[in-house]
Amino acid sequence: MGLTAAFTNAVGPILAVSVVGYVLGRGTDVDVGPLNTAGLYVLVPALAFHSIATTSLGGGEVLKLGVGVVGYALAMLGLAWAVGRLTGESGPLLGALMLAAAFPNSGFVGIPLSEFAFGETGRATAVLYLTIQNLLVYTLGVYVASRGTDRGVREAFGEIFRLPLLYAVLAAVVVRAMGWVPPAGNAAMETVRLVGDASIPVMLLILGLQLADTDVTAVTRSVTPSLLKLGAAPLVGVGLALALGFEDPTVARVFVLECATPAAVIPLALTIEYADGATVDGFTAPEYLSTVVFTTTVASVAVLTLVLAGLEAGVVF
């Protein structure tokens, strides 16, 4: 797949739907909250259940994927901390830099992109990546966001058990283990699939709506974390994929593609919750991180096209 094909077949559709959401957000006062709640509590859990219940991925690949997601987050946290200290960042802005580097947008961008590029295996791998990452976000991510504040990690750790995604994954695992997965074409599974498929365009619309509401006043200061996320992250992903030795090359490619996606939106909610009041050089951590999300999302159009073209050409796997 060349650059043109990579953009047309995978990146282009993602961009098009996101732009619709952006234009909608700029031209109307639509409230993204209810839409986000529907996606978080209904659509994404349905997508996760159906993808995991019907996936052809083996247990060994899933285990390697889990190690890879954790390894990527730890590696990028360490790299971001080192770069942040060298560039003089501290306190809540250093925490925001670390969050931006460690947690890619594996849901809103990664799942649709992986499905467009690699089909059912791509979607299942991306859903698993997102699930494992969410566990990290509400543990390790909360710790990073709350450093230097009087808020504890335990308080937000409960978010993991409040979100339906975890239970959808557990239910899918049990159904597979017990051999209870209904046959293809079953009405119940087709209904779950239909609801899950709706999450793809909805996530992209939400992404566009969120970008439309982003304050980009700190754009010049977002260069360092943006370069980390878009430049170093794909290389870290390739290194981990090679070290883990995925048996299925498609899983390896999706893993690298997920690592290369722009900064995630969920850590922004954490910084608003834990570090909204602290100001460094006139910027709050949420302002800083929202600008990074905006910058990396816009710039990722070119980066993801290059990464995807390279992966499809078999440059590494």
Rank of each mutant, 00 (worst) to 15 (best):
L113F: 08
L128D: 03
G119C: 05
A96T: 06
G91C: 05
L86C: 11
L97R: 13
L94M: 07
V109L: 09
T149F: 06
L93A: 04
F118M: 03
V109N: 08
V109P: 02
Q133E: 15
V144M: 02
T131D: 08
P104I: 14
G107M: 12
L86K: 13
F108L: 11
A145D: 05
R147E: 09
G141V: 03
V109G: 04
V109H: 04
L136A: 15
G148I: 11
A102T: 00
L97W: 09
G141L: 01
A82I: 10
F116G: 09
V127A: 10
L99I: 03
T131H: 11
L140E: 07
I111F: 01
M98F: 02
Q133M: 15
R123T: 03
V83L: 12
R147L: 14
L136H: 05
V137Q: 14
I132C: 14
L128T: 02
F116S: 15
Y138P: 03
F103Y: 15
A145P: 02
L94N: 08
R123F: 04
R85Y: 00
F118T: 05
E89C: 08
L94Y: 07
A82G: 12
F103V: 04
V142L: 10
V142C: 07
L113C: 03
I132G: 14
A126L: 11
V137C: 07
F118V: 00
G110T: 07
L140T: 14
L99N: 01
E89N: 08
L93G: 02
P104L: 12
L86P: 01
L140Y: 12
G84Q: 01
Y138C: 02
G107S: 14
S106W: 00
L86Q: 12
P92V: 12
Y138L: 10
F116K: 11
S90R: 15
L97K: 11
N105R: 11
A126W: 02
A145V: 00
A101W: 08
V142Q: 09
R147S: 13
A96C: 13
V137T: 14
T149A: 06
F108P: 00
L128G: 12
G122P: 03
L113V: 04
L140V: 15
Y138I: 04
L86W: 15
G91Y: 10
M98L: 04
A101F: 09
P92Y: 01
A102V: 00
L99Y: 02
A82F: 13
F116H: 13
F103G: 09
L130N: 15
V144T: 08
G141A: 10
L97Q: 11
V109I: 15
G119A: 07
P104G: 09
E115Y: 03
Q133R: 09
L135H: 06
L94R: 13
L97A: 09
G84M: 03
G91T: 06
I111Y: 01
T131R: 04
T87W: 15
V127Y: 06
A124F: 00
G122I: 00
L135Y: 13
L135R: 06
G141Q: 07
V109S: 05
L130C: 06
R123H: 01
T87R: 15
L93F: 04
N134T: 07
I132F: 13
L93H: 04
A117L: 03
S146Q: 09
A124T: 00
T87C: 11
